[in-house]
Structure formats: C-alpha cells, structure tokens
C-alpha cells in the first residue's frame, strides 16, 4: 500500500498524456521500479501518476547504421536486450551494463528512459550510453527537442526536463564496431547500486581505436572522462601512457563517501578500473 492518495491514469496517446501531465502534481511513470519505491517511502508524493507504458509509439525500437539505435521510452530493459540482438552485437558495453541493473524481475519492468529520467549518479545504463554519444529525444505539448545525454543531468536526481516534458526515445548513433567492458563494483552481485561503475568502450578497435570512458557513482552525475580520452588518442598503450590515462580518468571524478563506499575507495578504483578493463581486454599487461 502506498501511504497517500493519488489518481492514476494510463493515457493511450502522447497528446492525452500531455494533457494529464499539465495537472498540478502530475508525474510520469514508466516501469515504476524507482517511482513506486520512492512513493512507498513518501520521498515523492505526486497527486497524479501518468503511466506512459500504454502509449504504443513509445514501444518502438529500430536500428540502422545511418540512424543508429532508437529505443522507445517504454521499452523494458529485457525486451531491449532479449528481442533485439543488435544491442549485444553493435553496442556490447551497453548490453553488459543493462544486465547489471537490478535483477531479472527489475529488468522486466525497468526502462532505459526511466533509468535516465531518474537521473541517479549510479544509473548503470548511462555510462555506456555516454561513451556511445547517445541523445535523448524530449517531447512535450509544445514540440520536441534533442538533448545530448552528456548535457542531460544537472545533479543527483536532477536533469534538464521541464514540467510537462517527457523522454520519447533514446538515440544511440552507430559509428563502427566496438569492444569494451562495463565494470561494476557493488556490495552484492545483483540488486545493488554501484559503488562505482566504469564503462570503457573502444570504437573501431582495429582502425582509429577511439577509447572512451564514462563512470557512475563517482560524481553528482554520471561523468565522461574526456581529458583522458584526448590524452590516449593516437598514443601507444604503454605502461606509462596507460598510467597517465588512468590518472586522468580519476581526475574526472569527485567522489563522496556514502553507505556503499568511501570517497577514498572510489577515488582509487576510478584509477584502477580503466587499467583493469584494458588488461582484461588484452590491451595492457600491467598490474591493475
């Protein structure tokens, strides 16, 4: 039982949704795996819950090399990775990170759009999406706009969405084949938030070899380590260059201490994990 009263609506079209969302105290809902938990604890107390999962157009998924992967807001994480092999084939680091979200039950309800809209610094699906230069298509009664994911977050639980705006879809451009790893450290292996999460993606590993890194749970928002990426571009992966690269990844973070880990531990792991991922990918032989 949720300990307060509210009304619940399931619009079947975006225009109907916008109308209800304009009511005082209205919040959008997708899978509810964050919102219902917060409501049960009275951390969020909406007057009106607008369930978007009955809107057909939010369930679309498409992929083409030109348009990239487009993920409708209401597509559950399990639908995405089980029904669309392209996710694992073309965006392997994103695929790995989705499998680290909650548990199987969670992923039958949770959505990538919800993970983004919830805007937790610990959102596992976000670091890989940052490395793939994802964009967020935002819609409202007034029209639509495209926001770079890297510009979407403004703080813990905060983002650029204005009242009445919702995420319509996530657009993940396809550049070339990629390899990489999402490395998540958590207190238990499943159903836990990350103490730190590192996505390291290598775009076009046999060609231009663009190494990209983004991290969760080490700053007020998920962060991408652009300086480290710039440093390592066109450099051989030697012991000293990888060390400097890892230091620059570390310097892109500003961790705090919380129930899941200390700031010192997170700071240290922000340097260790990029090296460890490169080692596990067979690209670096040093200690990590």
């Amino acid at each position: 039982m949720i300990p307060f009263r509210f009304s619940y609506h399931k619009p079947s079209s975006l225009s109907e949704a916008f109308e209800i969302l304009s009511e005082d105290g209205a919040v959008p809902m997708l899978g509810g795996t964050d919102l219902v938990v917060k409501m049960r604890a009275k951390r969020v107390t909406p007057k009106v819950v607008v369930d978007l999962k009955f809107i057909d157009e939010l369930h679309n998924v498409s992929f083409s090399e030109d348009e990239g992967l487009v993920i409708g807001a209401a597509v559950t994480m399990n639908e995405l990775i089980e029904d669309f092999a392209v996710v694992k084939e073309r965006f392997p680091v994103f695929y790995q990170a989705i499998k680290k979200v909650g548990a199987y039950q969670t992923r039958n309800r949770a959505t990538v759009a919800g993970n983004i809209a919830n805007s937790s610094p610990a959102a596992d699906s976000v670091p890989p999406l940052l490395t793939y230069n994802a964009k967020v298509k935002v819609v409202s009664a007034d029209g639509e706009r495209l926001v770079e994911l890297k510009d979407f977050f403004t703080g813990p639980g905060r983002n650029v969405l204005k009242p009445g705006e919702i995420i319509h879809s996530i657009i993940v451009p396809y550049e070339s084949p990629s390899i990489g790893m999402y490395y998540k450290i958590s207190r238990i292996k499943a159903v836990d938030l990350s103490t730190i999460g590192v996505a390291l993606t290598i775009i076009d590993p046999d060609g231009k070899r663009d190494i990209r890194v983004a991290l969760a749970s080490v700053a007020p928002t998920p962060v991408r380590a652009f300086k480290a990426e710039d440093y390592i571009r066109d450099k051989e992966l030697s012991a000293s260059s990888v060390e400097r690269f890892a230091e620059l990844v570390q310097e892109s973070t500003s961790p705090i201490t919380d129930a899941r880990g200390s700031k010192e531990y997170r700071w240290e792991m922000a340097k260790v994990l990029p090296k460890r991922i490169l080692r596990e990918l067979g690209l670096f032989e040093g200690v990590a």
Binding site: Y8, V36, V49, Q105, T106, N108, R109
Partner: peptide
C-alpha cells in the same frame, strides 16, 4: 516475472 509489490493494481 515481476515484483508484484511494484505494480500498481490499476495498471
């Protein structure tokens, strides 16, 4: 499979 504690009954 879902956690029924997080599904609103009206849904």
């Amino acid at each position: 499979v879902v956690n029924s504690c997080l599904v609103l009954a009206l849904e």
